[in-house]
Amino acid sequence: MDWLTILVTTVEAAVGVETVVYALAALGVNIQFGYSGLLNFGQAAFLGVAGYGLAVIVSTFGLPFWLGIVVGLASVVVFAFLLGVPTLKLRADYLAIVTIAAAEIVRLIFRSVAFKDVFGGSDGRRAFSGTFYDMNPFPPGQYGIGPFGFSERVLWVLVLGWFLVGISCLAIYLLMKSPWGRVLKAIREDEDAVRSLGKNVFSYKMQALILGGVVGCFGGFVYALAFASVQPDVFGTELTFYAYTIVILGGAARVFGPVLGASIFWVLLVLVGNTLSEAVSAGYITFMTTTQVGPVRFMLVGLGLILLLVFRPQGIFGDKREIALDAR
């Protein structure tokens, strides 16, 4: 068994690209679900809309990179608004179903043959990240300590990604201790009560949905740039479900909960996956093949989500008195 490789990949996973992408997605979910009680199960679509916004502008239409970023952000805001208008008046369970349906609609459109000229069908889009890597201030080479390290491209993505995570956390921290955040938390508890106190509940929910979408969409940009491509199936419902798992793992309604949750989630996933693969190929485990390791990892995600909610719904860092799981 190659313990060094396992160690290196595991440690790198704690700060890696996936962790950044999922931390941003989960930070958005935390604003919507953790603080406001909005069961938005369409978070994947926000990442997708942002990633595709950038990719389509640059690679389909050949327009500048920065315009792609602006269009991606604007599309996310518009999408949040369009999604919010019909759904934010619905009960929590209906909201969950409708948002998941909306996200699937978006994914089906991205992968459709009818729009293949624009979105590239199931292959997605590539060749739009040139400008981004041209801006890379790190000269080519390997950066790191001992066996741990990243190439200059990955480092550039990570520096920017973690900067976005930091900015988002700061914004969430400032907002949630303000009266604005108080209204959101009150809406999570009982929106009729908030309405009776003269607050425009719909407007606050919309603001939360848009803010959560925008924070999540940074994850879409990071994904698109890190892998220099977007494919429709990356933005499926499971991305959203993992983001929820991460929020609950870290602790809902905690500023840093999703970030720590994302790190732990990916460390565990990589550690379990690599250890099992190594064990299988070294012959220690004989009842499964290396291709079966993938499913086992995600079975464990499901099992972990169940156990967390049953035994520690406040997650690792949450406050049990302050989570929205016992409400409708």
Binding site: K185, A186, E189, L197, N200
Partner: peptide, 23 residues
């Protein structure tokens, strides 16, 4: 709408109290 009714100075309470229990 309800929130504007409240802003105009007509405020209600509820039969089943709606204390925001996690605040």
């Amino acid at each position: 709408p309800a929130h504007k009714v409240a802003r105009r100075g007509m405020v209600r309470t509820f039969q089943l109290t709606k204390a925001l229990s996690k605040l």
